[in-house]
Design a protein around this nucleic acid. Structure first.
Lengths: 329, 329
DNA sequence: TAGGGACTTGCAAGCGCTTTCAAAGCATGC
DNA sequence: GCATGCTTTGAAAGCGCTTGCAAGTCCCTA
């Protein structure tokens, strides 16, 4: 049976004070005499009272809601970021309101409408493509993972191009020359940056770029592999735009009977939790998800305090595992 | 500049009616004349008005919040369930409030306190261990994935024991006799049920059970593999309590130089998205996550309507991929 | 032509909290 | 002993919405 929760009124009555006083001791917003404090606390304890967030927020005129727009809840990359973000929020009065944009701009716009209706005080963007006007229209500050422009929008951006450049260089250093890249039209600028980094490394080394497109899913990686090895059968190394793509490609190679890393080397991007547990363990560019989540939370909280957020300079680093071999070794 | 959102008051003024009328047309709670409806709609449109959920819920005396307790946001198994659950809720007035229990009973209890403070109207339990008194203390109905008891608690339970039994039988049918199981003390009854199913199959076949314990993570699977092959080096098949364990074990085998499925066969449980993309693709027991998420949502919604929820009978099925080989084949 | 019923509409109370404002209590200083 | 200045406390007004109730309209019937 749902025994209704007690109200501040009842607490006040039991403690022999006014609701105002109860509010004051609970929020520490004004000095209250020793004995009344005790009485209130006792009543609160006895009744098991917790203030209704609804009423409180309405009275205070704010929602304490922090909107989070992410692609979905099953992404092995965004999940951990959300986790860190939510974790950082736990000790604050703010609550995360996470909604999926389902990798579609239209759905993202719907999600924004929803968040606006929810009166979120700030928006955190994770792997969304929305930008510009719709963002400004929200009327709240935005903290984005990935480049964005606009007033009151702050972005945390890692140097994807540089990291991709270095990853490609790494492959070249291992003696590879026929190196392909699997990119994607899905996703935002980060993916394009990775492509650019790859191209630059290839160009500088005087090598021919071979690019095919997936959709950042395992299935996409598998299909891209099919296309790649049809068009460029002699490819010896592949740099994939993300780990899921690399993993999908991996099973394509497995089915085709090409061994990794002996015949084909693989480098991914993101370092999702399962990357280390592939066979062979996947060499990949690590994104510091924990730090990313925390930095976003920190920035959002700063904005809420009216401060100018400082976004840290986070590094992408190649983690060498076992999916890359040396040519002619 | 955060232009404050308009209130019902302003809409009413602009439409030349009372706030009550605006409320009525927006909620369809009473008949309103044609012209006033038009006027209200026009004003709403012009002002870009959306009712404040805070005020609305306070006035209605309910939160429209549906609490969800799950282990964390990065689980490849619970993520998809959450996704389906949240998706089903989209068209309803209810909002998911998901909080992580971090695989710890203490944290789960904290989470419950939080959910209670949030005035959730119903609780959905995903992979939590909490049961009994703390659950009842919440004072709201509970819909659980996995066996639970109590009044106003309803559980969706799949026959894990039977599925584990059949999975083990499958291995036996492939000619294996030295079959191990990696279980876990973490997790709830489901895991134990799988252990029991395994034991039963082994017993009935007159085979000796060999059980070691992991913690349902990849790392745990890896460690369990170490222990397993120390104690029982001649093991030819392993049935793991979940896919992550199997995947962790897989890399242990890889490092040890044991091939899958030629030397060791592997069966997992859950069929997480990445299971199909392992090398070799993992044979596993599929949990219908989409259906599970939807069934839980459906049940929760039914309970909210005051109805007795009907929980469907969902099936676990073995999906054969490439990680199991025949003995002597 | 008056009375009654069916609709439509606005008033005002209230949801549970916060916060302003003023009253009350008290000690201090002259 | 009285004015002054603090401090503690409660009354009451909202926050933005919903909803019970009653008033007002209009049309129909006797």
């Amino acid at each position: 049976m749902t025994k209704a929760q007690p109200t501040i009124e009842e607490v006040a009555r039991r403690a022999g004070v006014s609701p105002a006083t109860v509010s004051r001791v609970l929020n520490g917003t004004a000095r209250v005499s020793r004995e009344k404090v005790r009485a209130v606390l006792e009543a609160v304890e006895a009744l098991g009272y917790t203030p209704s967030p609804l009423a409180r927020n309405l009275a205070r005129g704010r929602s304490y809601a922090l909107g989070i727009l992410l692609p979905d809840f099953e992404s092995p990359f965004y999940g951990p970021i959300l986790q860190a973000l939510a974790h950082r929020l736990e000790a604050t009065p703010f609550r995360p309101v996470a909604v999926p944009g389902h990798w579609s701009l239209a759905r993202e716009l719907e999600a924004l409408d929803f968040l606006k209706a929810q009166r979120v005080e700030v928006l955190v963007l994770l792997g969304a493509t929305v930008d510009g006007a719709p963002l400004e229209a929200l009327g709240v500050p935005v903290v984005a993972f990935g480049e964005r422009v606009g007033e009151r929008v702050y972005s945390l951006v890692l140097d994807n191009r540089e990291a991709a450049y270095r990853a490609t260089l790494y492959l070249i250093a291992k003696g590879h020359t026929r190196i392909a890249h699997i990119s994607s039209h899905r996703g935002h600028t980060d993916i394009r940056e990775r492509l650019l980094g790859y191209r630059r490394a290839m160009r500088e080394a005087g090598l021919e770029a071979r690019v095919v497109y997936g959709d950042l899913t395992e299935a996409g990686g598998y299909r891209a592999g099919k296309e790649l090895f049809t068009r460029f059968p002699d490819t010896t190394a592949v740099f994939a735009a993300n780990d899921q793509t690399a993993i999908g490609l991996r099973v394509f190679l497995y089915e085709k009977g090409l061994s990794v890393p002996e015949e084909v080397s693989l480098v991914g991007f993101d370092d999702i939790p399962l990357a280390a547990y592939q066979v062979p363990p996947l060499t990949t560019v690590r994104q510091p998800v924990r730090a990313i989540g925390e930095a976003l939370a920190e920035a959002a909280l700063a904005v809420l305090e009216g401060q100018e957020p400082v976004l840290p300079r986070l590094e992408l680093s190649l983690v060498e595992r076992r999916s890359v071999g040396e040519v002619g070794a």
